[in-house]
Write a protein that binds this DNA or RNA. Sequence first.
RNA 1: GCUCGCUUAACUCAGCUGGUAGAGUGCCACUAUGACAUGGUGGAAGUCACAGGUUCAAGUCCUGUAGCGAGCACCA
Length: 893
Amino acid sequence: MSETIEKKASYNPKEVEDKYYKICEARGYFEIEGNKEIQEAGTDGKIKTFSIMMPPPNVTGSLHIGHALTFTLQDIITRYKRMDGYKTLWQPGTDHAGIATQNIVEKQLLAEGTTKEEIGREKFLERAWLQKKTSGNNIVHQMRKLGVTPAWQRERFTMDEGLKEAVKEAFVSLYNEGQITQDTYMVNWCTHDGALSDIEVEHEEVNGKFYTMIYKFADGSGELEVATTRPETYFGDTAIMVHPDDARYKDIVGKEVLLPLTDRKIKVITDEHVDMEFGTGVVKVTPAHDQNDYAVGQRHNLEFIKVFDEKGILNDYCGEFAGLERLEARPVIVKKLEEEGYIVKIEEHLHQVGHCYRCKNIVEPFISTQWFLSAEMAQNSIQKAKDTTKERAEKGSSLFHPPHWINSYTAWMDELRPWCISRQLWWGHRIPVFTCEDCNHTWADKADEPEACPKCSSKKLTQDPDVLDTWFSSALWAMSPLGWGNNGKMAETYNDTDMEEFYPNSLLITGFDIMFFWVARMMMMGEHFQGKLPFEDIYMHALVRDEHGAKMSKSKGNVIDPLDMVEEHSADIIRFTLAYLAVQGRDIKLGAKNLEQFRNFTNKLYNATNYLQLNVDTFKDLNEIKVVTPLGRYMESRLAEAVEKVRDSLDTYNFSDAAKALYNFVWNEFCDWGIEYSKADRESIPELGAIFKETLKMVSPFMPFISDHLYHKLSGTTLEEGESLMVLPFPKEIKADEEAEKMFAIIEESITALRRAKVVIDMGNSKIDKAYIKLDPTAKIDTQMAKPFIEKLAKVLEIEFVDAKVADSITDVSDNLEVYLPTGEIDMTPIITKLTRQKEKLEKEIQKLNGMLNNERFVANAPEAVIAENKQALEDANNKMTKVSAELEGFGV
RNA sequence: GCUCGCUUAACUCAGCUGGUAGAGUGCCACUAUGACAUGGUGGAAGUCACAGGUUCAAGUCCUGUAGCGAGCACCA
């Protein structure tokens, strides 16, 4: 690199982003009245409203790339709607994240050499709140680095005073309706975290072992081979079962076998559940420790024997093994069985094992008493989601975007089972159910500490020790921050009109991974309490992967930290990159290359601004001027198309299309043509500046900082003393100018033809003295107007319009014109080659078009417009063919 | 096993309701001309996974196959 090339100044986001963000937040732009000046009424005469709830991140979490994607998309839509005159609510908040937070605090205690049991519930909760406070706002501050604009003044926490009320409101109401009931049932049990709902269990394939062991008949008449993956549970066996049709075992049904190493006898029964083909066809039945056996046990009235406790410690049923932990016990028990000759064989066995989604512990099916929310209460929301889809389908829209998610949603909902909502934790919403110690009356109460038993007035009351599943409070998130159920608490964070204005929410944007955890639950709660589904649209975005398509994970070391990216590039660049890559229905592969492309884009924006200001200091807004120059008219017309494209794309949540439309307009239209043309027509520059400022308004939702900065730069104002771009109206209703478009199409064609021709004579893009253009009779333009543009961009000192081919020249043939470059004695071979290839292409095209147009059935069936289009294409091709052939003849080919 | 998605240029991906295949990157050639070399100009590059079907016309609609991915269920 030569040292003479100076490093030019470029845009420095670090000087802009934090400063601008602080100013905008302080001015209240993010709040629902932040754009009051430009709010406008909809068709019904009321102010248009738009609402979107932020999926509350875990209060103890930190920002990862998935957050960056979801928040960026939410922010783009929010900013767009805000600029488009909607009264806009983007509701922020954080989630108390029961298990996750509790685990963090427990670890801290462990490090301090104590436990939660030792310090007690009250102290523990103090610690948890402390943890919430210290690490709690971390993520919220990290989010600001992305430039997102939720209504921070309304920030909520799923365990704040108001939302606590909402949870109680929902619980008590559902309890009184009989939708919430307590039941003793087999649940998924984590020996560390307690009860889990079905979807909190992650099934993973593991290499296990398949043990075939011997059960001897009690009467000494032989033995049975029984296969199992979990030998340690055999102490809880209460039957042996075979298939009723299994001829092999007809004779043993009803006989008794002895459990190995014990003298307990169990019976051989028959049940359809057995798969005769699998294993030995003989199955041990452990009703207290297996989901299927539980059902078998109920069918056959078997005894339910638990062999370990909540912590997984084996009990007295296990004889000498009592006191061992269930997983540690297995090899010990197997060893003993082997020694005693009870093990026939041990095989490798690949099978699915459930793990706790939080601590990865192996989950046990375990019988316990828990609270459940009935599946019936979800029925209306299921039906409505289907109906809504039907209604919308007629309008060409759908509830889910992309629409195929409705399949997953309904498939899951149709098989919905009661939701286990109680958790054996301390951190969370305490279950508001009380029992009177005197009369045993049990009831749900909204009061934290009810005065007395409503039945016998006793004051000896106890509250259920458990808390609710974190997702229970999240399930209310579409309405609880709007004041629903808040019982007057925290009323400063919402308005009385909020429910009416913002429910149903306009849109939900979230990842598909929490569709069942969260979306489905909000659907049931929203419909149940409001009679309306909580969302008008649901946009499910994909996963962000690394550049090779692998999932990002700490262990793989391929994690991209969004804050690092902000540091290295800028919030604007990350936002634009993510938006550009956010195509519906496909995962995002993110690599350094992507970011570079859009870093270059910001540079382009910056330099376009520089260019404009080399010529004119400051520019007016587009609506303040009348665009009169031909170039101005043309660029405004191109802008009109870009505006329409960006709007359409955002309206249908096609973020990628919107970003592409912006990118293409700025780079390929405005810079490559507009700015270059303006070098031949300085008069148009004030108009181009106004058009560029309008473009920056469209850029603003995607790249809020650089757009604001450049807008003020071009206006000769500052953000400090002026209004931010983010609360100015989003461009709309710009008119296309067909006449200008047509003229510039010919000018552009001339320039391209000349550039091509120059390459053929090895002139590259160096300057030449003279060139000629012969326009077809159909190509009518103002040649005086066109001339300087063509000369400048084609780099020809002088062009001349002619009516006939110029002698001693080479030609470039295009649709509406031919250009001629005068030649000395140059080698004509490359030109002939080029023309020959062009001719071959044309022949093929003409043949194809002729084939179509001579096909009677095509002419009879195709719409007129399509026929006309093809006829025109044929005519054009034939024209061009004539010209190319004439050229070739000229060369004697 | 069931459901869904993906398969288009060397790579990463667009392509709506069927009407002559697009972008970015990369590649080749030219290029320090007054916004930008993070730039400009021109160019090469595709049996649209495969096999059938519907249609005047299929990357696009239908059926099936294969490969990859995701979710759900089952596996004693």
